[in-house]
């Protein structure tokens, strides 16, 4: 049980978060809610990458005095990658919000079925 809690629980939580976002995009009808679900999904991926860098007993990846042992530091590469992924997620959200403003201006609504009905009229 302890093994499950320390080793695999966090990955289960990540998987639940990811699928929650995925389900949210599919199941919601409102564009705003879809966008929020999309953000949850992206955050789940970011958390997954950060988990890869984590190490028991590791500290910040800045050289500590004369300590050159790799095991004493966490892996900084996933963090660096995720900085890029966060920027991507930010700009995706920005573009999505801008598009949503245009949609709201023209259709006066953000419910998908209503917009599709008017679009194909």
């Amino acid at each position: 049980m302890l093994d499950f809690l320390t080793n695999s629980l966090i990955y289960w939580l990540f998987a639940i978060l990811f699928l929650l976002g995925f389900f949210g995009i599919l199941a919601n009808n409102n564009f705003m809610k879809k966008l929020m679900a999309m953000n949850i999904m992206q955050v789940a991926v970011i958390i997954f990458f950060l988990l890869l860098g984590q190490k028991l007993g590791g500290t910040l990846p800045v050289i500590w005095g004369t300590d050159y042992v790799v095991e004493h530091y966490i892996n900084p590469l996933p963090h660096a990658l995720m900085l890029t992924a966060i920027v991507v997620s930010l700009s995706t959200t920005g573009v999505a919000l801008a598009l949503m403003m245009r949609i709201q201006d023209h259709y006066g609504d953000l419910e998908e079925d209503e917009i599709l009905r008017r679009m194909n009229k």
Partner: peptide, 27 residues
Amino acid sequence: GNKATVAAFRYLLVGTIGASFYLLGIG
């Protein structure tokens, strides 16, 4: 145009799902 905004938004959602799956895969 106005129809295109909706098409682009729906593509954005689907495309981000695709990109997230790819990112997770390389993870």
